[in-house]
């Protein structure tokens, strides 16, 4: 699924990285507020959905090769997080949906979990 589709499905606002949305194909999704849980997955390359609005959410995505980050419940990200996402060319967007709703929508559309 193209990241653009995910943005549309979640009615999300793109904060940075709009130019990469059409080129990135994603089939997996991981959801966590604890970044160590994200880092513990041995495969990633998917999208991260989180309620964590600080720079560590983006830093984790960068280190763990995650392709895009989605923030839930319309949270406002830290400025440093936006700057880092821009620098590392990681698409970063915000949806008004709760984490439960966002996951439900993407699960129904066929996104898969990230294995251990």
């Amino acid at each position: 699924m193209k990241v653009r589709q995910i943005v549309n499905l979640l009615k999300a606002t793109v904060i940075t990285g709009d130019e990469f949305l059409d080129g990135l194909d994603i089939d997996r999704c991981f959801v966590a507020d604890l970044m160590s849980d994200v880092l513990a997955r041995s495969h990633n390359f998917g999208i991260l959905i989180t309620g964590l609005a600080n720079i560590q959410a983006v830093r984790t995505a960068d280190i763990a090769d995650i392709k895009a980050v989605c923030l839930v419940r319309g949270k406002r990200p830290e400025q440093a997080a936006v700057a880092l996402a821009k620098e590392k060319e990681i698409p970063f967007f915000v949806t008004k949906y709760t984490m439960f709703e966002a996951c439900g929508i993407l699960y129904a559309e066929g996104l898969k979990p990230v294995e251990e």
Binding site: D33, L34, S36, D37, L39, A40, S42, L52, N54, Q56
Partner: peptide, 15 residues
């Protein structure tokens, strides 16, 4: 609060 401290750090490092 910053997303860490789940007690998984050293476990991840080992892995």
């Amino acid at each position: 609060e910053l997303g860490f401290g789940a007690g998984m750090g050293l476990v991840n490092i080992k892995k």
